[in-house]
Design a binder for these strands. Sequence first.
DNA 1: CAGATTGTTCTCAT
DNA 2: TATGAGAACAATCT
Length: 307
Amino acid sequence: MPELPDVEGFRKVFASCAQGEVIRRVDVRDSGVLHGVSARRLRAALEGRRFGRPERLGKWLLAPTGDARTEDARTEDARTEDARTEDARTGDAPSDGVPTDAGPTDEGVAGPTVLLHFGMTGRLVCGRPDDELDPHDRVLFAVGDDRQLRYRDQRKLRGLWLAADDAAVARLLDRQGPDALTVDREEFEAALSAHRGRVKAVLTDQSVLAGLGNLLADEILWRARLNPACHANDLSERERHRLYTHMRRTLRSAVTAGRVPPRPSWLTGHRDDPTPTCPRCHSPLRHARLSSRTTLWCPHCQPEGAA
DNA sequence: CAGATTGTTCTCAT
DNA sequence: TATGAGAACAATCT
């Protein structure tokens, strides 16, 4: 379920719960969510440090850490994080700091970065250490005086990674395209025209555009009145422009709501109806498997021969 | 009990 | 090289 708007919500949860706070204790309840790092190493790397400002790229959440003593972890990290995500977005290696020569720079306070991906059922919960444990609480971060940030996930499809430095972060994110929320129109249209696949497959390809999932793609295509099976490079200039506009509008609303809202006026509000009808023209909606994903569209508003 | 669900990554065609 | 289809992953619900 988590797509860009959900992860943006998790970023806010993270920020209000843990940004600038000292990490007192890391409790891994289920190491099945850890990738490339053991519970012991995660603890050793994080405990005693301070969380900086969390960033999001596509469906990834990045949580940098700084030294516990530096009170300015938030401002320091805000600056370096911007540069870091920019590097990852463009696929370039970070221009500063050579990976092999990791000698302390003037910002020797920089610590490792925790990367989180929520798969389909992951979320972040902020509470207190003595809150009742949910069976799906996989990792607990006790932070500050009396708070606890929890990575909760039913199915453990994705999870947590630990990156020692900027280069390691960039390596983990090197397959990510530009973020769907911040991509400009030129870049968006260039990315679309560069692919011949079905527009829905292209929109949800994280290496083309990072952040859109199944529900968002259906919603955006429905609003833009484009058939999900049409080919990305067949779109006219006007259609690409329209798609970009509706992506922006849809994302803006969804980010505000913290998810793709199942409102009656949205296509998403009718996904689970027994016989769904189009909220716009009230003709019956079609659903089929496209790019091995369940796809919902309105044959009337989104006709086969483009619009 | 089969089948579907969600996102990503892998493999195997085409 | 790019695209698509399907499996696998984990856990749960219908």
